[in-house]
Protein backbone atom coordinates (compact mmCIF):
# COMPACT_ATOMS: atom_id res chain seq x y z
CA UNK A 1 0.00 0.00 0.00
CA UNK A 2 1.11 3.54 -0.54
CA UNK A 3 1.20 6.03 2.34
CA UNK A 4 -1.62 7.95 0.60
CA UNK A 5 -3.82 4.87 0.53
CA UNK A 6 -3.15 4.21 4.21
CA UNK A 7 -4.22 7.79 4.93
CA UNK A 8 -7.44 7.42 2.93
CA UNK A 9 -8.36 4.23 4.76
CA UNK A 10 -7.77 5.89 8.10
CA UNK A 11 -10.13 8.69 7.06
CA UNK A 12 -12.81 6.17 6.15
CA UNK A 13 -12.52 4.65 9.63
CA UNK A 14 -12.82 8.12 11.19
CA UNK A 15 -16.05 8.72 9.30
CA UNK A 16 -17.54 5.55 10.76
CA UNK A 17 -17.25 6.97 14.25
CA UNK A 18 -20.75 7.25 15.69
CA UNK A 19 -22.32 5.24 12.87
CA UNK A 20 -23.25 1.85 14.33
CA UNK A 21 -25.46 1.21 11.31
CA UNK A 22 -22.31 0.22 9.37
CA UNK A 23 -21.98 -3.03 11.32
CA UNK A 24 -25.73 -3.64 10.94
CA UNK A 25 -25.55 -3.25 7.19
CA UNK A 26 -22.46 -5.43 6.99
CA UNK A 27 -24.04 -8.39 8.77
CA UNK A 28 -27.37 -7.93 7.00
CA UNK A 29 -25.68 -8.06 3.65
CA UNK A 30 -23.38 -10.90 4.66
CA UNK A 31 -26.23 -13.10 5.86
CA UNK A 32 -28.21 -12.45 2.69
CA UNK A 33 -25.23 -13.22 0.47
CA UNK A 34 -24.16 -16.28 2.47
CA UNK A 35 -26.83 -17.47 4.90
CA UNK A 36 -24.63 -20.29 6.16
CA UNK A 37 -22.30 -17.73 7.76
CA UNK A 38 -24.96 -16.95 10.37
CA UNK A 39 -24.02 -20.13 12.17
CA UNK A 40 -20.45 -18.87 12.48
CA UNK A 41 -21.55 -15.87 14.52
CA UNK A 42 -23.79 -17.17 17.28
CA UNK A 43 -23.58 -13.85 19.13
CA UNK A 44 -24.08 -11.29 16.39
CA UNK A 45 -24.92 -8.51 18.82
CA UNK A 46 -21.48 -8.72 20.42
CA UNK A 47 -19.87 -9.11 17.02
CA UNK A 48 -21.57 -5.92 15.81
CA UNK A 49 -20.07 -3.93 18.61
CA UNK A 50 -16.60 -5.32 17.97
CA UNK A 51 -16.48 -4.99 14.19
CA UNK A 52 -15.73 -1.30 13.79
CA UNK A 53 -13.32 -1.22 16.72
CA UNK A 54 -11.40 -4.19 15.36
CA UNK A 55 -11.21 -2.59 11.94
CA UNK A 56 -10.01 0.70 13.35
CA UNK A 57 -7.34 -1.07 15.31
CA UNK A 58 -6.02 -2.98 12.32
CA UNK A 59 -6.11 0.04 10.06
CA UNK A 60 -4.02 1.93 12.56
CA UNK A 61 -1.35 -0.74 12.15
CA UNK A 62 -1.15 -0.61 8.35
CA UNK A 63 2.10 1.34 8.50
CA UNK A 64 3.69 -1.26 10.76
CA UNK A 65 3.61 -4.66 9.14
CA UNK A 66 5.04 -6.69 12.03
CA UNK A 67 2.39 -5.50 14.48
CA UNK A 68 -0.35 -5.89 11.92
CA UNK A 69 0.78 -9.38 11.00
CA UNK A 70 0.78 -10.58 14.61
CA UNK A 71 -2.71 -9.22 15.14
CA UNK A 72 -4.05 -10.59 11.85
CA UNK A 73 -2.62 -14.03 12.46
CA UNK A 74 -4.25 -14.17 15.86
CA UNK A 75 -7.58 -13.11 14.42
CA UNK A 76 -7.16 -15.44 11.43
CA UNK A 77 -6.56 -18.44 13.65
CA UNK A 78 -9.77 -17.68 15.53
CA UNK A 79 -11.73 -17.29 12.30
CA UNK A 80 -10.39 -20.59 11.07
CA UNK A 81 -11.77 -22.11 14.23
CA UNK A 82 -15.23 -20.71 13.37
CA UNK A 83 -15.01 -22.48 10.00
CA UNK A 84 -14.32 -19.34 7.96
CA UNK A 85 -12.85 -20.21 4.58
CA UNK A 86 -11.11 -18.28 1.83
CA UNK A 87 -14.34 -17.84 -0.11
CA UNK A 88 -15.91 -16.20 2.96
CA UNK A 89 -13.07 -13.71 3.15
CA UNK A 90 -13.66 -12.73 -0.46
CA UNK A 91 -17.36 -12.35 0.20
CA UNK A 92 -16.78 -10.36 3.37
CA UNK A 93 -14.54 -7.92 1.50
CA UNK A 94 -17.21 -7.33 -1.13
CA UNK A 95 -19.98 -6.99 1.40
CA UNK A 96 -17.95 -4.62 3.53
CA UNK A 97 -17.28 -2.29 0.63
CA UNK A 98 -20.99 -2.29 -0.20
CA UNK A 99 -21.92 -1.59 3.42
CA UNK A 100 -19.51 1.33 3.48
CA UNK A 101 -21.07 2.73 0.31
CA UNK A 102 -24.52 2.32 1.92
CA UNK A 103 -23.54 4.21 5.03
CA UNK A 104 -21.08 6.80 3.78
CA UNK A 105 -22.56 7.58 0.35
CA UNK A 106 -20.44 10.16 -1.48
CA UNK A 107 -17.88 10.12 1.32
CA UNK A 108 -16.82 6.68 0.11
CA UNK A 109 -15.74 7.59 -3.44
CA UNK A 110 -13.65 5.64 -5.98
CA UNK A 111 -10.31 6.57 -4.38
CA UNK A 112 -11.49 5.55 -0.93
CA UNK A 113 -12.94 2.32 -2.31
CA UNK A 114 -9.69 1.44 -4.10
CA UNK A 115 -7.61 2.15 -1.01
CA UNK A 116 -10.06 0.20 1.14
CA UNK A 117 -9.77 -2.84 -1.16
CA UNK A 118 -6.00 -2.76 -0.89
CA UNK A 119 -6.23 -2.67 2.88
CA UNK A 120 -8.72 -5.52 3.19
CA UNK A 121 -6.71 -7.55 0.70
CA UNK A 122 -3.60 -7.21 2.83
CA UNK A 123 -5.43 -7.89 6.09
CA UNK A 124 -7.29 -10.95 4.79
CA UNK A 125 -4.18 -12.38 3.14
CA UNK A 126 -2.40 -12.11 6.47
CA UNK A 127 -5.34 -13.70 8.24
CA UNK A 128 -5.49 -16.59 5.78
CA UNK A 129 -1.77 -17.26 6.26
CA UNK A 130 -2.39 -17.98 9.93
Amino acid sequence: MTPEEIQLVAEVIDRLDGRPEFADRFYERLFVAAPQTQAMFPDVAAQRLKLTAELASMVSMLGNLDTLEARARDLGARHRGYGVRASHYRLAREVMAAALADVLGDEFGPDEAAAWNRATSLITELMMSA
Binding site: M1, E4, I6, R118, E125
Partner: peptide, 18 residues
Protein backbone atom coordinates in the same frame (compact mmCIF):
# COMPACT_ATOMS: atom_id res chain seq x y z
CA UNK B 1 -3.58 -5.85 -8.54
CA UNK B 2 -4.84 -5.96 -4.94
CA UNK B 3 -3.10 -9.29 -4.42
CA UNK B 4 0.13 -8.04 -6.00
CA UNK B 5 0.00 -5.01 -3.75
CA UNK B 6 -0.51 -7.18 -0.68
CA UNK B 7 2.33 -9.45 -1.73
CA UNK B 8 4.70 -6.53 -2.25
CA UNK B 9 3.70 -5.03 1.05
CA UNK B 10 4.41 -8.29 2.83
CA UNK B 11 7.78 -9.07 1.27
CA UNK B 12 9.04 -5.49 1.44
CA UNK B 13 7.68 -5.10 4.95
CA UNK B 14 6.67 -1.48 4.50
CA UNK B 15 4.50 0.74 2.30
CA UNK B 16 5.56 1.41 -1.26
CA UNK B 17 5.25 4.72 -3.04
CA UNK B 18 2.62 5.09 -5.73
Amino acid sequence: PDAIDSLLHRVLGAPLDG
